[in-house]
Simulated scan of single mutants.
Amino acid sequence: MQRCVTLLVIVLTAGMSAALQIQCYQCEDVRQDDCTSPEFIVNCTVNVQDMCQKEVLVMEDGIHYRKSCASSGACLIASSGYQQFCTGKLNSVCITCCNTALCNGPRHKRRAASHACAAPSISHYITSLLGLMLLYLCLH
């Protein structure tokens, strides 16, 4: 039984740490969507910053971008709070959140980013399933 509990803790801990650290682009007030080179890639804080955030501001002198790591709660609140200001016109502010590596980079034809509905990654499901299977085997 002790061996089962130890194995269960190892599987769950390894799965959580691998699933909860992502990399995002990080830059402040860039006038082009060009902060996608390797020097702008940062490792987000494990178990705290689980999303990437991208802000697009339309100003008189052009479009400005801010990209960073964020916690899911803060990012989703900010994106929903600014949704009414995301018009694409002058003084527009759009904030998007996503939860995959480097998802706050340039837009692709098929959208990898989600706005207010970030789904858990597949690794969360696999880790949970492995943990449940181990727990079942330990108890039977």
Rank of each mutant, 00 (worst) to 15 (best):
T6Y: 07
L7R: 09
V11D: 01
L12I: 13
T13S: 14
T13L: 15
A18M: 14
A18L: 15
L20D: 02
I22C: 01
Y25H: 13
Y25T: 02
Q26D: 01
D29E: 11
V30M: 14
V30I: 10
R31G: 13
D34L: 11
C35H: 10
T36I: 15
P38E: 01
E39N: 09
F40Q: 07
F40T: 10
I41P: 00
V42P: 01
V42R: 05
V48H: 05
Q49M: 10
M51C: 12
Q53G: 01
V56H: 04
M59G: 10
E60S: 12
E60C: 01
D61S: 10
D61E: 11
I63Y: 04
H64C: 01
R66F: 09
C69N: 02
A70D: 12
G73E: 14
A74W: 09
C75A: 02
C75L: 04
I77F: 03
I77A: 08
Q83M: 07
Q84F: 05
T87H: 05
G88H: 13
K89C: 00
L90Q: 11
S92D: 03
S92T: 01
I95C: 03
C97W: 02
C98Y: 00
N99Q: 06
N104M: 06
P106A: 11
P106R: 06
K109M: 09
A112K: 13
A113K: 10
A113M: 08
C117L: 07
A119K: 12
A119M: 07
S121W: 03
S123D: 09
H124N: 11
I126E: 01
T127F: 13
L129E: 04
L130C: 15
L132Y: 10
L132W: 08
M133G: 05
L134T: 00
L134P: 00
L135Q: 05
Y136I: 14
L137P: 01
L137D: 02
L139Y: 11
L139D: 04
